[in-house]
């Protein structure tokens, strides 16, 4: 563990809390893409199946359980409790291409080891899972401030993982090219969002697309 990955994980944790706060406070999931949330749940379930095969640490185990449980809870809030506030007409990204593409890459590069296929699938999928949300954002042209804080924390956590990997490469000779490339793609997808977040929200202005 290093400070970069610790802060990254805490940011990821914070993003979940911010999203839950937004949904609870406004009693609405408007502006949130159910498809992206579904993809994140799939990411967590497929990546954290090693809960049953390996024990890393209490920290590692509890974080995994937290992410799986909260992501499914968010799906429940969006699909059932606050379903009246969700507009599927705004959430129209074709996720089957993201799922299919991730699975294909995982099969190609995994030597057909099941746990490795699932892990790689989750890494590739996570790198593009924000696309339905960004697509929805581009269609509405604006976002609630709290939603932008959620997206900043979510986008920022993998950016910090990039620094964590740089640190681990230099200090431990730790190599993980698949994670590096997927993490870079994942962070790059947020660059437009980060720019608007920095120039508007952090100056007290509303998040609006030009």
């Amino acid at each position: 563990m290093n400070i970069f990955r610790l802060v990254a994980d805490l940011m990821h944790l914070a993003s979940i809390f911010i999203l839950l706060l937004k949904i609870q406070k406004t009693r609405s999931c408007s502006g949130i893409s159910f498809k992206s949330q579904l993809l994140y749940s799939i990411v967590f379930v497929t990546r954290y199946l090693d809960l049953f095969t390996a024990f890393i640490s209490l920290y590692n185990t509890s974080m995994k359980i937290f992410f799986i449980a909260t992501s499914i809870y968010i799906l429940y809030l969006m699909k059932f409790k606050f379903r009246a506030t969700y507009d599927p007409n705004l959430d129209t990204f074709r996720v089957e291409f993201l799922l299919g593409g991730s699975l294909l890459l995982a099969l190609i590069f995994s030597d057909f080891v099941l746990m490795e296929i699932l892990w790689q699938f989750s890494i590739y999928l996570e790198s593009v899972a924000i696309l339905p949300q960004l697509f929805m954002l581009s269609r509405t042209g604006e976002a609630e401030t709290i939603t932008t804080h959620y997206l900043f924390a979510l986008g920022g956590y993998r950016a910090l993982y990039l620094i964590n990997w740089l640190w681990r490469f230099v200090t431990e000779s730790h190599v993980d090219k698949i994670s590096w490339i997927a993490g870079a793609v994942q962070t790059a997808l947020y660059s437009d969002f980060f720019y608007i977040y920095y120039t508007k929200v952090l100056h007290g202005k509303k998040f609006e697309l030009p």
Binding site: I56, F67, Q120
Partner: peptide
């Protein structure tokens, strides 16, 4: 491309 080492990150 990727070693099948034990994954210790989230």
């Amino acid at each position: 491309l990727s070693p099948h080492r034990e994954k210790d990150e989230l």
